[in-house]
Simulated assay, not measured.
Amino acid sequence: MDRFDAMQLFIEISERGSLAAVARARGVAPSTVTLALQQLEARLGVQLFARSTRRLSLSSEGERYREDCLRILADLAESESAVTGQRGALTGRLRISTTNDFGRSRIAPLVHRFLRMHPGVRIELLLSDTVVDLIEERIDVALRFGPLTDSRLTARRIFTSRRVVCAARAYWARHPPPTHPSELARHNCLVLARRGAPQSSWPFRDEAGRTFQVRVSGDRMANDGGVLRAWALEGAGVILKTACDAEADLQAGRLVPVLEPFALPATELHAVHTAGRSPSRRLSAFLDHLEENLTSPEATREAPARAAKGKPPRPATP
């Protein structure tokens, strides 16, 4: 049995949870399936299943190996289809990483729409405001705001979004809004913390377009942007958010922006994936889906005005 056949057999065992069930489905003796699994585990040097009298369950090594097998087998089928010119339905798995707020509000609905168009694809959406290692965590694509710093990765720009300093009306009613960024030192700023390091410097631009940083602090911090936004909506303090995260609250007046004359440098959203190999068809299709359906709040607001003037929409710019 070659490696690909062994992988397929392993997947069948993991799905059925029984060597006997796999043997019946394949029309072979149970001892044949048992021997094949033993040979696979011996070659890998790990135990893929925890045995019980009633059922097999995947070990932690087995869980990881199963994910890799599913991806490898899907890539193999895709490669063979491309070579033979048979571009069939998309299959295989995608692991997608993005931030909490943005993932819930913008990416989860797009994932749902994508899977309705491509039911053969399976997606695992991982939400975290901590930057993950794509290679170590075996992430197919991460949606990240800000510059690309890892040379092992390739980035595809999706859109640019402004950043806003804002708080609830109840907070501004108790604390006079700042007229200059330096006055934030007198306010309770709700700070995002990543890996225990608070983002306690917020960027601004002066009248000459030069960027400067202002130190901020407050009575609380969190590693989840959604938690910070919820606290801000309760009137607890001031937050720094991308407009695409807070747009609904800004439009509804639940959050009120300040310091707009000192417009913060815009930030770019990139779809980031590992470099050195062409993306799979399913990943390319998902990236196209993102680019076609994700727009910044600025572009959404500007498009009707340009259409009314008879001008074609153009991509958002900083």
Rank of each mutant, 00 (worst) to 15 (best):
F4D: 13
A6Q: 14
M7N: 02
R24W: 02
A36V: 13
L37E: 12
E41C: 12
Q47S: 12
L56R: 03
S59K: 03
E63H: 15
E63R: 14
R66L: 15
D68G: 12
L70E: 03
A74S: 12
D75E: 15
A82W: 14
V83Y: 08
V83G: 06
T84Q: 14
Q86T: 10
R87D: 15
N100C: 02
R104I: 03
A108R: 00
F114L: 06
R116L: 10
E124S: 12
L127F: 08
L134Q: 02
E136K: 13
I139N: 00
D140H: 06
A142V: 03
L143S: 09
S151E: 13
A155S: 10
S161G: 05
V164R: 01
A168P: 01
R174N: 11
P176I: 15
P176C: 13
P176Q: 15
T179A: 15
S182Y: 10
L184T: 04
L192R: 00
L192M: 11
A193H: 03
S200F: 04
P203I: 05
D206K: 04
A208S: 09
R210P: 04
V216R: 00
V216T: 01
G218F: 05
D219F: 11
D219R: 13
G225D: 06
L228V: 10
R229G: 00
A230M: 02
A232G: 04
A232S: 09
G237L: 01
A246G: 02
E247F: 07
L250H: 09
Q251W: 06
Q251Y: 05
G253H: 14
L255D: 02
E260L: 10
F262L: 05
A263S: 14
L264V: 05
L264T: 02
H273A: 07
T274R: 10
S280Y: 00
S280P: 05
L283V: 07
D288M: 08
D288Q: 13
L290Y: 04
E292V: 04
S296P: 02
E298S: 10
R301S: 01
E302F: 05
R306L: 15
A307C: 08
G310W: 13
K311Y: 09
R314A: 13
P315R: 09
T317K: 15
T317D: 15
T317E: 15
